[in-house]
Amino acid sequence: MSEKTSEEKTPLIDSKGLRTDGRKLDELRPIRLEVGNLSRPDGSAYIEHGRNKIFAAVWGPRELHPRHLAIADRALLRVTYRMATFSVSDRKRPAPSRREHEISMVIRQALEPMLFMELYPRAAIDVFINVLEADGGSRCASTTVASLALADAGIPMRGLVAGVAVGKIDGKIAMDMNDIEDKIGEADLPVVMSPERGEITLLQMDGKLTPKELAEALRMAEEGIHEIHEMQKAVLYEKYAKIREEVGEVSQDVDDDILDDDILEDVADEEPLEEEKPKKPAALKRKRTTKAKKPDSDEPEAEKPKAAKPRKRAKPKEEETS
């Protein structure tokens, strides 16, 4: 799309410096998040980001079928991004499109680095993303909501990820592109990152940006992502805080029976603490020391044990024959 037509037909920024939907250049669309709203999946979440309405459901870690896909040392993450036939103004044909396949893949790649996949070898973690209504930046909103659903499913992760699409409209860098801006703007830059770690897990670009503009766009994206991340944390926290409030207590009693005593067994393999030494590691250590002693004694008298061994073996034979 040439700049000329976009300026002539639909100016994306009006004289007051506001966009088509009345936002400022650095303003996010309204976002609403829900978590745990589906009862069947292990984890679920819902997002309304501008006109995007997206559900995410997570199953797993669960048994992987077909079996041949299993990875011996980690779990397999499968992400399915699907658009409802009524999600766009022209009916979307129900068959999975090339675009849906691609978005499924980039979302998977945006989520996977955050997960501890090695904890569940041979298992599968399935993420299903259903777009009920699509607006600009749906892959970013999908990643935001999928990350929430994974957290809701209790899958161990390094942190949440959130996404926002920044871009360039009428020569200016703008935050959180909507559908029209995405289509007739000069550039669209979807970014997904982990705000706590400052790591980008998804970065795509459609259009043209100068290096300077790219840097500015990324800085703007980071700001937006931080804002979305705060909402993500709040909604996850709220799910459980609500029940606590309802019950009417927040006790800080350490000795309460919420504690699972087994939990310390798997504590990282550093030196056990003074007050509690897990039984298992102690037993292992004993074994190790006995093993370690053997080669030590072997070294100085290498020949003797060799000579001794046949004798030991010979003995039972004699017994058998006798």
Binding site: D152, L264, E275
Partner: peptide, 28 residues
């Protein structure tokens, strides 16, 4: 030290851990 799952954080001695609220059963 960061939390990896949604849960209740606890400290025992110098060990910080999170009792998970959600998750699948892993055989032990």
């Amino acid at each position: 030290i960061f939390a990896a799952v949604i849960g209740l954080v606890k400290m025992k001695g110098k060990t910080v851990y999170v009792v998970p609220l959600q998750g699948q059963y892993i055989p032990k």
